[in-house]
Computed example of a mutant assay.
Amino acid sequence: MSRQATGRASIELFAGAGGLGIGLSQAGFEPRMVVEYNRWCCDTLRDNHGALADDESDPDAAWRVVEGDIRNVSFEQFEDKLDLVSGGPPCQPFSLGGRHRAFDDARDMFPQAVRAIRQARPRAFVFENVKGLTRASFMSYFEYVKLQLEHPELIAKDDEDWQDHLARLEQHHTAAKRDGLHYKVVTKLLNSANFGVPQRRERVLFVGFRDDVDAKWSFKEDGTHTQAALVWDQTFGDYWDRHEVPKKDRVLEGRSKLMAKRLSKDEMPESLPWRTTREAIIDLPDPEKAPKAAARIDNHRFQPGARVYPGHTGSYLDEPSKTLKAGVHGVPGGENMLRRADGSVRYFSTREAARIQTFPDDYRLHGAWSECMRQLGNAVPVELARVVGESVAKQLDEAA
């Protein structure tokens, strides 16, 4: 994987398979340390980035993977030396499909993200998490996370309840005079499909700039791509002919069908159309129907066992895919399989799922299919990370 030398130093926490890190690297950030607990993810990172595993001999080595518990990693060596700290603190406690134990779940790693900010004092940070964190039932905890990131030096006392800590943070936040380290934090809920990713995937972002950085960051949630533009192309444009779709298979589903009735041929949307699953994987051989051709492509093998059940019907080829899911006890069926026009279904191959997450084609994932899908299901789409990264880099450059 090539890197652009720009001098924008960063570190990546909870790196997973590297989706956020790749996109930020494409935006010009160079990770000096990459921290990840899962061994398969670490193998993936090392294989694709020429990483130096736990090598302290070169403190400036990019993509130096530190495998292990982040609670045992110090970030003091990076104090005032970084442009960015980024990562995706484990999100299972907040997932809509999880157990919703945000307040007392031991897997909540946001305190470690705050510690990294406190020790490294970067000019900016980008953290991401699932949409579930914005649920009304998590409103107080969402604010708690945001205030900790804004005031990382106001640490919880021993045995202090999170709600008492929240109260102290609120008082500090509204104080007339505040000393120490502070960040200006903006939160955004983004749908990846609106940014050219062939997947409906919503992620919440925490973007912060240190108080002494004169940044005026903002970001349009609606992006550059829309469903209306896709439906217009399918209704009045040449979408079907362009992809040589048989007339019997030219079907709009659900909301797209309703939207088509409201569109006018004379009013073509100015935005770009959402990218579809078909567009993401159209040039790959079907691993079920053409296994020999598929076998010549890394991570592109047929996975048997896909089935439809209530609420899990697969992703339609001519829409962005459903959100790829990592699953708690295995891989959920409907989110990680495609549905053909005739109603038949099959699981996405690892390569197809990587395409849907906009990973580069030369990116090799390690582990069995279920493990690779877990890595991809937890990842940030590379293209979304790149777009966000470029907007943050622009502010840092202008504030320099």
Rank of each mutant, 00 (worst) to 15 (best):
H151D: 02
M33K: 11
A17H: 01
E390T: 08
K257C: 07
H165R: 03
S57N: 14
G208L: 02
R46H: 05
G333N: 15
M268E: 15
V197T: 00
Q375C: 04
E150G: 12
E76M: 09
E319L: 15
H172F: 14
S137K: 14
A106C: 08
A136D: 11
K247P: 15
L384F: 01
G327S: 04
Y37D: 01
R210L: 08
E371Q: 13
D80H: 12
Y37H: 11
T174H: 14
A27P: 03
L133M: 15
G21L: 01
I155C: 10
P332G: 04
E335Y: 12
R340A: 12
Q357D: 04
G23N: 00
L169Q: 06
G343V: 06
L230Y: 04
P273T: 07
P31F: 06
A102I: 14
A136C: 05
Q227E: 10
R115K: 11
D55R: 10
F75P: 06
G333K: 13
E288V: 10
V65H: 08
P310Y: 01
V145Q: 07
P320K: 00
K325R: 15
D238T: 14
Y183V: 01
K325W: 00
A353F: 06
F142Q: 09
D249Q: 13
V130G: 05
C41P: 00
